[in-house]
Design a protein around this nucleic acid. Structure first.
Length: 254
DNA sequence: ATGGCTCGTGTAACGAGA
């Protein structure tokens, strides 16, 4: 079973790339973030034609999440029941006995911003809800754009970024609290090359110079981590024409 | 020193992303 996550930065623009990527990488589950589509505009027919079931939760202009799956999705849940949020950032479903959570964590903008306070409150509520999900579903995978680089080795220039949004201590502590629920960062279960990133700024030749951050993660419960055979970041679509600024992350379970 | 690029909105810039 292969699970993947990809922040597509507009599914309207990136749908052809998603379909091409699924042809190249026929994963069982693909979580998408930043679809930026209201539900009436979601491309259901194109995705079903590619052989996937789909659940989605969107809004105009911003945010929006979706889960594509080879097998049917059951017990679909939109939003965190412990957090009243007008922003569509959470979608959960059960697929082949595995509880899948697709998450688009707020960016936070900067540490002195109201958006940063919202990010930390959102993460605290995510923790509260995931604690319950983890008890209900021993096979739990939380995939998405966390907008947090867990460690300095996940940042191209840690000195330049020190204390800033995406790397600040409160954000990293919030991510650690999620891990303390018994979840593991699938990427770090395996040996990886240095300077492995999942996002690169569109500006300043960010990708070409590999000035990036690893902020997209797949967290696995103990039962799933034991089944995990590999976790990789696929840089290929970042080289395509008109790419998303994020690359997909894929975890392979036995 | 500043902003760099790419989205959506809406049809000109601007907010947001990270």
């Amino acid at each position: 079973m292969k699970l993947a996550t990809w922040n597509v930065n507009s599914l309207k623009v990136r749908l052809p790339q998603v379909l091409q990527w699924l042809t190249d990488n026929p994963v069982d589950v693909l979580c998408l973030q930043e679809t930026k589509l209201t539900d009436d505009k979601f491309p259901i027919a194109e995705i079903e034609a590619a052989g996937y079931h789909v659940a989605f939760s969107g809004q105009k202009t911003y945010n929006g999440v979706a889960i594509l799956s080879r097998s049917p999705l059951t017990d679909v849940l939109k939003n965190n029941p412990r957090f009243d949020d007008p922003q569509q950032r959470i979608l959960a479903a059960t697929i082949a006995g595995v509880r899948i959570v697709c998450a688009y964590v707020p960016n936070g903008q900067s540490v002195d911003s109201d958006k940063y306070d919202y990010k930390l409150a959102w993460l605290a509520a995510l923790h509260e809800w995931l604690a319950e999900e983890a008890k209900t579903y021993p096979q739990l995978a939380v995939l998405g754009d966390y907008n947090i680089a867990p460690e300095d080795r996940d940042v191209h220039d840690p000195a330049a970024w020190a204390g800033q949004v995406l790397v600040s201590e409160p954000e990293r502590a919030a991510l650690q609290r999620l891990l303390d629920l018994g979840l593991q960062d699938a990427f770090r279960l395996f040996e990886q090359t240095d300077k492995s990133f999942s996002w690169w700024d569109y500006r300043q030749l960010g990708f070409r110079l590999n000035k990036g951050m690893r902020i997209d993660h797949i967290l696995l419960s103990k039962a799933l981590a034991q089944r995990c055979q590999a976790c990789v970041i696929d840089r290929a679509p970042r080289k395509w024409e008109q790419p998303s600024d994020h690359a997909p992350v894929i975890a392979t379970l036995d």
